[in-house]
Design a protein around this nucleic acid. Structure first.
Length: 466
RNA sequence: GGUGCCAUCGCCAAGUGGUAAGGCCGGAGCCUGCAAAGCUCCUAUCCCCAGUUCAAAUCUGGGUGGCACCUCCA
């Protein structure tokens, strides 16, 4: 297994801290709004990573946090005059709903900021004791970046004076512009938590380091094997997390750092501020979750991803082929058979998640299976191996998990489906009577409903037209 | 200004020293009552220039053109 490590900017062979085990921590969402395609990309990438690690025989402990304390949440709660937990509960549920639809497996541990306050207090307290953090007259606690000789070595940033001057200052008494808040004291009546440092709320970066110490860290040179997140988090978020953990004096934070690229829409960066965010839930109303999964994973995770519907449709056609093969073998019992294909697939994915190579292998496998089944429909060996291959793809990549008929009939209500079936029966009778004019007319009628027909030896099947 | 990334067929996209994967679209054919699906065959020398090398899309230098982060963001 090879992983591109952002910290060293090199592809490195993966060596776990503890043989056979992997600890993986990924920065999860701040639950103040519905999840967008960027959240989906990140979640999908690390879901795939987890599956590939497992396929390589590792026991993976996967933590992804839920940030449920945040200024944006507090602001929204205040604006709508509702409780903060109403917001966080709503959007945590929404996040789970969307991720489930995308086939993202739930993490092993999903720590929340509100449930990790004691761990954060411990972390802050320790940093103060060790001289790496200080309190201001305002009651804030800041991390002293100059006390960490390795600060900025992770991301490789240089901060010049002009840069630092331009940063927004929120507090008096901050010793250095780069210092960041571990604890923000709050004097107004918005949501606060009582801490050993007085009422307030934790700073942006505090929770991840605290959660990692609490849930994952062992006694090795690094707290965890792999830390992941969006590319934007590399600096300053991860730099700061790394500094916090390092200054605790026990270990460095992560042995490998992985950052996924951004999702753009029609060339524009997707962001709240530009108001062109594209919610997962909206995409899910038009396409199967798995189509989105397949599309979002089809480009290498480190590249920026330019989301557009035309590409999504082209991508869907590729997934369709997998499902048609699945349909072809529908109802047959799957047994585990090790094949060369599976070995190659895992090899491709184990090379820093080379999904393109993996998809290419899948295409070839599908084509080859179809070819054999065309010429020799009763080939039992091929059927057995193909079924095993499909099951393997399902497990490692999460593609092909749906019932193939339902996959192709996405978006039709029961009533319409009945109507379609009635028309198909009528057409078959016309066909039997060799009344092709009538049967073709029915087919045209169905085409207008967005339905394509396929006459096969097993009967007439229909699919939703793209 | 600082840091980093990218430029491969009409489109999407792998490949990072050994002579260009795969998909979409398109064309020809097989199959079919006709279709659809499936199958077969066909379509690029890798932004430009210079260099290193027996050998470069892959390394080096210089251009040109995109992009991201440095402020809330996955």
């Amino acid at each position: 297994m090879f992983i591109y490590d952002s910290a060293t900017r090199k592809k490195r062979k993966f060596e776990p801290l503890i043989p056979g085990k992997v600890s993986l921590y990924v920065c999860g969402p701040t639950v103040y709004d519905d999840a967008h395609l960027g959240h989906a990309k990140s979640a999908l990438v690390f879901d795939l990573l987890r599956r590939v690690l497992e396929a390589n025989g590792y026991e993976v402990t996967f933590a992804r946090n839920i940030t449920d304390i945040d200024d944006k949440i507090i602001k929204k709660a205040a604006e709508q005059n509702i409780d903060i937990t109403t917001i966080t509960d709503t959007y945590t549920k929404a996040y789970h709903r969307d991720m489930d639809a995308l086939g993202v497996r739930r993490p092993t541990i999903e720590p929340k900021a509100t449930e990790s306050l004691n761990a954060m207090y411990d972390l802050i307290q320790k940093l103060i004791e060790e001289g790496h953090a200080y309190r201001t007259l305002d009651g804030d606690v800041y991390f002293d970046t100059r006390s960490d000789s390795k600060y900025l070595t992770l991301s490789g940033h240089n901060q010049d004076e002009a840069d630092l001057q331009s940063r927004v200052e929120s507090s008096r008494e901050k010793r250095h512009p780069a210092d960041f808040a571990l604890w923000k004291s709050v004097n107004d009546n918005s949501i606060t938590f009582d801490s050993p440092f007085g009422p307030g709320r934790p700073g942006w970066h505090t929770e991840c380091s605290a959660m990692i110490e609490k849930h994952l860290a062992g006694d090795k040179e690094y707290a965890i094997d792999i830390h992941g997140g969006g590319a934007d988090l590399f600096f300053p978020h991860h730099e700061n997390e790394a500094a916090q953990t390092r200054c605790l004096g026990r270990h460095e934070l992560a042995h490998y750092w992985m950052h996924n690229g951004f999702v753009n829409i029609n060339g524009e960066k997707m962001s709240k501020s530009l108001g062109n965010s594209f919610f997962i839930k909206d995409a899910l109303s038009a396409y199967q979750g798995e189509v989105l999964r397949f599309y979002l994973l089809s480009t290498h995770y480190r590249s920026n991803f330019n989301f557009n519907e035309e590409d999504l449709i082209a991508s869907k056609k590729r997934l369709d082929k997998l499902y048609r093969l699945k349909k072809r073998l529908f109802g047959m019992k799957t047994t585990e058979v090790k094949t060369d294909f599976q070995t190659k697939l895992l090899d491709a994915l184990s090379d820093d998640l080379n999904v393109s190579a993996a998809l290419s292998l899948i295409d070839e496998m599908v084509q080859s299976a179809n070819e054999t089944l065309d010429s020799n429909p009763k080939d039992k060996v091929v059927k057995r191996e193909t079924l095993a291959n499909l099951a393997y793809i399902e497990k490692v990549m999460g593609f092909g998990v749906m019932n193939p008929f339902e996959y192709f009939q996405f978006g039709f209500d029961k009533e319409t489906k009945e109507k379609i079936n009635t028309l198909i029966e009528e057409r078959n009778e016309a066909k039997k009577a060799k009344n092709y004019e009538r049967s073709d007319a029915i087919r045209d009628e169905l085409a207008e409903l967005g339905v394509s027909l396929m006459d096969t030896a097993q009967g007439t099947f229909w699919e939703r037209t793209n």
